[in-house]
Design a protein around this nucleic acid. Structure first.
Length: 577
RNA sequence: GCGCCCGUAGCUCAGAUGGAUAGAGCAACUGCCUUCUAAGCAGUGGGUCGCGCGUUCGACUCGCGCCGGGCGCGCCA
């Protein structure tokens, strides 16, 4: 069948173990309109020899081919995993260079729940892609430029309370911003034309390099960065670079010039805009303007995003990796789904622009995500209607976790309980965020994320703890001879667990392909479940050889996959809890 | 008005190129701790996958049309 698409011949895990371990259902589609799918499958099977790995291959239903692993092959796979640094994972080929744009908080504003999904998702994807062997550059595109600074400067000069700035700089900056902002909206009752004009004037001065305003601006940035660093450190999130909007101040001019010269951007109502009028343009942006320079000549986020695409594809890789031959062909935007139109505009414009100037347009996938809702199904807010601050949220997570740990394990010293509470609390918040399909909204619930049962971070961490406890009790180390031992898998719980371990790499690849960490969450939950059943039914330390060693190996591999999997999710593990 | 996303068990959610009898957790009920951490395990009940039509050997998944909800649409990011 020479015209068949070989890449469609996927073999993947069976949906239900009663059919087998792996299945291939592509033959049904391939046989279509040529011959009976079952007869075709019979002919294929006649030429297929997988007897080294599989039991007798079964043909079922309309033409499904079901494979069942031989226990000996399974044992062999586990043995080689025991000797691997990263069991069950294969590096992807070819190795790509990928920029990830995520988190992007604003200067002078406290980080709040609105930033958490981008931060956690982006970090998780960076970890996943790196583990699979790709070169990843994480970039925090901080909002440190734009209209809000006019108002902030007015507030700083007229309303600033130095003592308040000392104790809680973000709260104070937010206060003065809100105070001025409320007077700058002509639609609102408190509108004050003089303040509005003053804000505009301060903004112009800042943009023109006024020394005093630059000093204040720099101070605001410094205070904000301190806050960002504190949050990122608690979350264990790191960036390769932090190139804020202002970094592109001197780079937007080139964007205007090139897009105008190529006739891609045109003047409209005083602004510089790009239209997508081609019949093939996506419906959501067709005929709508993408404003890349405001009427007053100032840049907006479209300007800096365009400049950033150019910089990231042409300069960034050289800066981060000391070599010249890397091409960035992909920039991931981890931003919420409401920015869909913006990203589509950006992509369409970049495509025209790069093509017209002889550059290769990069892929610009949007990793979009939904909103975090409160119990009332409205976007999550505090009782008084404010945004929930990330710092408060993380504090509460740790406090709640501490209560539970202290209740469950009161004998541990306090310092250790606090450390466990940190790991469990932060892990619970992250896991709750990564578990739902990212495109849907989810309801935030402390009780659910910290629950002692169900699909939660504590459940996975607990599975890890139980394994570590076995090794502690038995005084066993992995080095003590089991690394090269023969495995003898007999109990059904052993075999189910072992087979599940094998699929770790496949799941990571699915996560990387669709930018969907929830596949990994579900895999790890099933792994922990399989382990729990094994743990109930298969005593380890009291078993006789060769079962004892076999089970120790299963324990060790499960622990390593759990730890590695959680690490990819950005979640820490602990030895006791 | 145009566009995007969503609608699966009482509740919160999974469901990887369309694939086999649609799955978890919670909530309800029933068992299991002198035995490696019971933050666990085993079991029972619970569904016209919003509605209709179509494509297909096969549809929760794809197409069209309704109904219901969220969000976005010219100078915020």
């Amino acid at each position: 069948m020479p015209d068949a698409d070989a890449s469609s011949l996927l073999i993947r895990p069976c949906p239900d173990p009663k059919f087998g371990d792996y299945q291939c259902n592509a033959l049904i589609a391939l046989a279509k309109n040529r011959e009976n799918p079952r007869e075709f499958a019979v002919r294929v099977l006649a030429k297929l020899d997988v007897s080294e790995w599989c039991e007798k291959v079964e043909l079922a239903g309309a033409g499904f081919i079901n494979f069942r692993l031989k226990t000996s092959a399974l044992a062999q796979a586990l043995q080689s995993a025991m000797r691997a640094d990263r069991p069950f994972i294969q590096k992807e080929n070819p190795q790509r260079t990928i920029v990830i744009d995520f988190s992007s908080p604003n200067v002078a504003k406290p980080m709040h729940v609105g930033h958490i999904r981008s931060t956690i998702l982006g970090d998780c994807l960076a970890r996943t892609l790196r583990l699979l062997g790709h070169r990843v550059i994480t970039d925090n595109h901080i909002g440190d430029w734009g209209t809000q600074f006019g108002m902030l400067l007015v507030g700083w000069k007229k309303l600033l309370d130095r003592n308040a700035l000392e104790t809680d700089p973000l709260a104070e900056m937010e206060r003065i911003y809100k105070a001025v902002q409320s007077k700058c909206d002509p639609e609102k009752p408190g509108y004050d034309a003089a303040t509005h004009e003053a804000a505009r004037a301060e903004l112009v001065k800042l943009q023109n390099g006024d020394a005093e305003n630059l000093v204040i601006w720099t101070e605001m940035k410094k205070l904000s960065q301190k806050q960002f660093d504190e949050i990122y450190s608690r979350l264990g999130v790191k960036f390769d670079c932090t190139l804020p909007e202002s970094f592109y101040n001197d780079k937007v001019k080139q964007v205007y010039e090139e897009l105008t010269a190529k006739g891609i951007a045109v003047e409209s109502e005083g602004a510089l805009v790009v239209f997508q009028n081609e019949p093939t343009a996506p419906a959501n942006i067709k005929g709508r303007p993408f404003i890349i320079r405001k009427r007053d000549g100032a840049a907006n986020y479209a300007s800096t995003d365009l400049a950033a695409v150019l910089y990231r594809t042409e300069e960034l890789a050289k800066e981060v990796y000391p070599r010249d031959d890397l091409t960035v062909e992909e920039v991931l935007y981890v931003v919420d789904s409401r920015q869909r139109d913006h990203i589509d505009h950006l992509f369409a414009t970049v495509h025209k622009w790069f093509t017209a100037t002889g550059r290769n347009p990069p892929r610009l996938p949007q990793v979009d995500f939904g909103t975090i809702l409160g119990e009332n199904n409205r976007p999550l807010k505090t009782r008084s209607g404010e945004n929930v601050r990330l710092r408060d949220l993380l504090d509460e997570a740790e406090e709640r976790a501490l209560k539970i740990v202290s209740q469950k394990n009161p004998d541990l010293p306090e310092a250790q309980r606090r450390e466990i509470a940190r790991i469990v609390g932060i892990g619970a918040v992250k896991y709750a965020d990564l578990l739902p399909n990212r495109t849907s909204d989810y309801v935030f619930s402390w009780d659910k994320m910290l629950a002692l049962d169900g699909n939660t971070a504590p459940y996975l961490q607990y599975a890890y703890v139980r394994i570590r406890s076995i090794f502690r009790k038995g005084g066993e180390t992995v080095e003590s001879g089991i690394r090269n031992a023969e495995l003898k898998l007999t109990a059904p719980e052993e075999i189910t667990l072992a087979k599940h371990l094998l699929n770790f790499g496949i799941v990571l690849e699915a996560v990387a392909k669709e930018y969907r960490p929830n596949y990994l969450c579900n895999y790890l939950y099933e792994l922990a479940g399989n382990f729990a059943r094994f743990y109930e039914n298969c005593p380890v330390l009291k078993a006789d050889e060769p079962q004892r060693t076999t089970r120790l190996i299963l324990c060790d591999l499960t622990a390593r996959v759990l730890k590695q999997g959680l690490e990819v999710l950005g979640i820490e593990t602990t030895e006791q809890m």
